[in-house]
Design a protein around this nucleic acid. Structure first.
Lengths: 153, 153
DNA sequence: CGAAAAATTGACGTTGACGTAAACTACGTC
DNA sequence: GACGTAGTTTACGTCAACGTCAATTTTTCG
């Protein structure tokens, strides 16, 4: 009912969306409740329909949460900002004043910079941990050899 | 009262310990409550005394929590394991049966391997995010130039 | 020594991020 | 067109990781 060949082939129900992304249906409804992820459509009867873009957004949210350790509030801000930028492309022809465009771009760049610094910090910390862990692993191997020589039970 | 020159110069009260490690005193008491970090000493009157080793442990806990995203239960297990290994060194002369030594070593190696894989996974995810972020940053710069050319307000 | 500052234990409160139960409705299918 | 599965809203429950009193010592310092 949309337009071309199979344009609404990306109509996934909440159960499928949850299963394929590894979150619960409750989580998806909760994300909508707090305005984090509003599914791109609904069925006639009112059932949520998740598009591929929605699924990507879910993964994005989980990445920000698990990899960067952001809470849902921070994630919401990040997404709001990204959405604003996406809106620029979509409404390119519409009359978005230059000043507003500039604002959005500045905020996006700002958030981008902050996130890159967070990523850098995490990478540093991880590298340090990795070094420590490998040092320990080496010591463990040595210890194991010693124990093994004395008594290979 | 301990032994040498200034062996108990590492006697820090909970407030100092909290301030220097960046956690709250409540957090330190909570960590003790759940057996995560029992301060190495107490004053005559019952005030907690934190040693340098305790401080290092606090940092270690926060690292595991913030960098690796472990919850306090997992962290406790990791620490318990590390403590067991440390115990081996301390009680080296005491009669720790070889079989027990072996068990401890195996568990430590096991946890070490798991942690290394977690670290590796995080590093991969971070690298991917970094690439994405830098790609976006580049696009933002391009956009900024375009906007700037049209109107350098 | 005496008062202010800091600690102690105990208990209840809070916040984020969902889980779970209930009562009802929509959807595919035989 | 009945029926079982999945989805909807509403609402209360939960769990981790602390926060926040409150009443009572301890410790430090002038």
């Amino acid at each position: 009912m949309t337009a071309a060949g199979r344009p609404d082939s990306d109509a996934m129900r909440i159960g499928e969306a949850a299963a394929t992304t590894g979150v619960s249906t409750r989580t998806l409804r909760f994300y909508e409740e707090i305005g984090l992820l509003v599914p791109s459509g609904r069925s006639a009867g009112g059932a949520r329909r998740y598009s591929e873009a929605d699924l990507a957004r879910i993964h994005h949210i989980r990445d920000l949460q698990e990899v960067l350790g952001f809470d849902l509030g921070e994630i919401k801000e990040v997404l709001r900002c990204e959405d604003a930028l996406g809106g620029l492309r979509t409404e390119y022809r519409a009359g978005v004043p230059d000043r507003r465009r500039h604002e959005i771009l500045v905020e996006a760049s700002d958030i981008n910079a902050r996130m890159r610094s967070v990523v850098a910090a995490k990478q540093e910390a991880l590298a340090a941990m990795q070094a420590e862990l490998e040092e320990k692993a080496a010591r463990y191997r040595t210890l194991a050899r010693q124990l093994g020589q004395v008594r290979t039970d």
